[in-house]
Write a protein that binds this DNA or RNA. Structure first.
Lengths: 113, 113
DNA sequence: AATATATATCGCAAATATACGATTAAAAAC
DNA sequence: GTTTTTAATCGTATATTTGCGATATATATT
């Protein structure tokens, strides 16, 4: 690859693709579902639910946190995670805007005959 | 990584994460936007729009095609691409179901104090 | 027939992502 | 004060993704 060409795209496209890439692993979707269900979890609870080692789960949590989709606060030796709804909804809105934009351009006739 | 743990997740989570991963690169989002805008494009038109080499664009097109999101038909030496709306809407619906499912579980009180 | 055009594929290099065990750090329990 | 518990980080191995040039293939054009 040598050079990362990502920066040459529109910032909107980068923003959306970063969100999509973050959801691009089943573990991270499962984590969001678990957190939504339970409202908050300590790391260990999430590890129990996933078929992955603790260190791997910790990495996925870090990635979700870096994207702002979840937040974790220390609670003694434990670390309590929950969804950052504001941020999640912001990303969802952007995604919905894209899908709406695409759908409004859906042609009536068939293409590429 | 040694072993791919993806298969140990729920098929629904795998399905969604595959879709998300496919949108996880700005080039593929840009391709979908271009195809929606123009209804159909030959490969060369897409190459013109993107800041990537022809062979790289061809790879991204292949990935979108493998996921069923676009279809390409040969037209002489040219290859005409368009969006597979049925499939795209199917993925979007699944994604919307996830977001709805998450949002219905949004708590009223703050978590992780 | 020879040449030009268009695009898919191959082969390779580099970057990124995934996964785990081992270690570290910090608080809790004893 | 020592031990245990919890989770983050480090180091490392492997897999996957991204990107390009070169090549192959197939159709148009001349």
């Amino acid at each position: 690859m040598a050079i990362n060409k990502k920066s040459e795209f529109l910032s909107d496209e980068i923003y959306l693709s970063d969100f999509a890439r973050t959801l691009g692993h089943p573990a991270r979707i499962a984590i969001l579902k678990t957190l939504a269900e339970r409202h908050e979890c300590i790391c260990g609870e999430i590890v129990e639910v996933l078929p992955l080692a603790q260190s791997t789960v910790s990495q996925h949590l870090k990635e979700l946190k870096n994207m702002g989709l979840i937040q974790g606060t220390l609670n003694g030796p434990k670390s309590c995670y929950c969804i950052n709804w504001e941020k999640l909804e912001e990303y969802m809105d952007s995604f919905n805007k894209l899908t709406t934009e695409l759908l409004t351009k859906k042609p009536t006739a068939l293409c590429c005959k």
